[in-house]
Design a protein around this nucleic acid. Structure first.
Lengths: 160, 160
DNA sequence: CAAATATACGTAGTCAGCTACATATATCAC
DNA sequence: GTGATATATGTAGCTGACTACGTATATTTG
């Protein structure tokens, strides 16, 4: 355990560690979809899954829902439109808004994916069900940060 | 708790969640350095800290140590060289190798940072010491993935 | 109801990592 | 000691998120 310098530095490199783990999981996620012969990219998940559950949404409300900055969502939407998985139309009441929804192709794909998700959920549960549950830890940390940022917490120690 | 669709989807969006948390911590990290009036970027940490602890290393061994692909390390090294925090020289025994080390400026900076790290360690401990410890969870998950990848675990459920 | 402000969407460019590929030098097998 | 292979470094370009900024439409305020 903890052979290299960075691991030994522990908390200091936490951001790096999180990113590395995120990348690794994303890449394996892609492989699982491929194993099922499904043309689906992990990065599409938040947008498509939200549309699947909530049908029609505007760009900004969708972004808020998935926790992305809206330009990130827009570039995903462009990609998904090219794949013909979603389409959009103007909101007649508020013409600034663009309402996004799944196409039939999109809905079909998402339904076909349900069994894949089950596999992913099981595999992830398998991995994260260790002494310290990763998902719960993330939730707890995010909740903590919402209450008081990292910087604010550090300031307590700086100022003394 | 768990108000939006993505949070409710839990495990499926784990990669996204990890990345978001990583970004957030990195940004706050930068602010902490600024609060100390130190010109230091969080992304420099792995390279500089490793050189601080191990003095001289080649590009590839440094990359292995910090867990980066070597081109990532090279671009960091370019930046650090411009900042005059590191320098490099050819290995006389194996002329393919480029040996990297901290300059005096680099060593001075790193020494000056020790108190900042202490603050960061305390603040991070503050955040991560919840019911499920994030660092421990990451360690456990990485150890688990080393043993058996995400894909291999998923295959068990696919094949049945 | 006109001016100020807020909201919705879009584009451009940044960032911190990556992969793929190229080249030079070492090492190994015979 | 030469040919095949492995290792060390480097360049180019990708990725998936971001911020900054601009424009158009709604909403609020005096």
């Amino acid at each position: 355990m903890e052979q290299n310098v960075i691991d030994a530095s522990g908390l200091l490199a936490i951001s790096t560690r999180l990113q590395r783990l995120s990348d690794q999981i994303r890449k394996d996620g892609l492989l699982i979809y491929k194993a099922f012969g499904i043309d689906f990219q992990p990065k599409w998940f938040p947008v498509l899954y939200t549309l699947y559950k909530k049908s029609t949404m505007s760009v900004v409300s969708l972004s808020d829902e998935i926790g992305y900055a809206h330009p990130s969502t827009i570039s995903l939407l462009k990609e998904l439109e090219k794949e013909k998985l979603i389409r959009s139309k103007k909101d007649k009441v508020d013409t600034r808004k663009r309402l996004i929804e799944l196409t039939e192709k999109g809905t079909t794909l998402l339904s076909a994916m349900e069994p894949v998700w089950e596999v992913i959920i099981k595999a992830t549960a398998d991995i994260t069900n260790t002494q310290n549950n990763l998902m719960k830890a993330i939730n707890e940390v995010e909740a903590g940060l919402k209450e008081k940022t990292f910087l604010q917490r550090a300031e307590v120690y700086i100022k003394k």
